[in-house]
């Protein structure tokens, strides 16, 4: 009975998801068949995309691996340095006022402008791709985590002071756990941005030398070769990476916060 109820509760969203997918697919194919001959390359059939992906499977797999490598490396760097910088910024309003403008400069500079510099400094390929991913993921993590660290309930801070908690105790036992929901909000945004960042990075600073480049380089290559079904395959893979990245972080946040935070909790109480 309870399993039946569960299925009934979860069925409509799944059904809607499949239905929306089917509608999209049918519309796509319908549009494809109505396009004039000379424009048909704009919207290849899903079958043609699938076939192209199959033909290029080895190259695309290699490119996907390279992009994931850059995305994960940059994402990891962003988590490490974003959290660290947030801890520093949370020290005092003075520190925030002094450092924030410089950190914002990182975010405000367009990647294509920075890319040539990064290639000069770090070398083309993985190092630059990881750095660009880092730059894109860093800011949302920094801003959210800092916000969390300075938003601790004032009365809780006063209680900790009355209990004679030291600065470190206050940080690790109060401010850091209280900031976790904010941190995970930043992490979710960064998780969406990481694959995008890696692809943009690869597009601006990637290289086919040695490892064949990542998905950004593939997209560039296929577009110059007018290989549009292959280009669509890259789009699909990039989207898929975003979903996997986002899903993993959602799962992690639920594991970390599910027991105590309403927004992440299942309805178990």
């Amino acid at each position: 009975m309870t399993t039946m109820a569960k299925i009934r509760k979860n069925l409509p969203p799944v059904l809607m998801f499949l239905l929306a997918g089917a509608v999209l697919l049918v519309t796509w194919i319908a549009v494809h068949h109505r396009l004039p001959e000379h424009l048909i390359f704009l919207l290849p059939t899903p079958g043609a995309v699938w076939a192209a992906a199959g033909k290029e499977a080895a190259v695309l797999a290699r490119a996907t691996f390279n992009t994931m490598e850059g995305a994960l490396l940059g994402f990891g760097l962003a988590i490490a340095f974003g959290s660290l910088a947030a801890l520093v910024l949370s020290l005092s309003p003075l520190v925030r006022a002094g450092l924030m403008p410089y950190l914002m400069l990182l975010q405000l500079t367009p990647i294509p402008v920075l890319a040539p510099l990064l290639v000069l400094w770090a070398g083309a390929g993985l190092p630059s791709v990881a750095l660009i991913t880092f730059l894109i993921c860093f800011f949302p993590l920094l801003v959210n985590t800092t916000q969390g660290l300075v938003s601790t309930d004032r009365q809780l801070v006063e209680l900790f002071r009355m209990w004679r908690a030291g600065r470190w105790q206050e940080l690790w036992r109060l401010r850091v756990p209280a900031a976790l929901p904010y941190f995970f909000t930043g992490l979710r945004i960064a998780a969406i941005l990481a694959p995008i960042g890696a692809v943009i990075g690869d597009f601006s600073a990637g290289t086919s030398a040695g490892d064949g480049g990542g998905l950004g380089f593939r997209a560039y290559y296929y577009s110059t070769q007018a290989k549009y079904p292959e280009l669509y395959a890259v789009v699909a893979i990039t989207g898929g990476l975003g979903f996997v990245s986002m899903g993993t972080v959602m799962l992690l946040s639920r594991l970390a916060l599910g027991r105590w935070h309403d927004a992440y909790a299942r309805n178990d109480s």
């Binding site: 009355m162 209990w163 976790l180 105590w260």
Partner: peptide
Amino acid sequence: AAAELAFVFQEPTLLPWL
């Protein structure tokens, strides 16, 4: 005398993660 004092606020002010 901090060790002899305890404070209770209007809000329970619990740590939600514990």
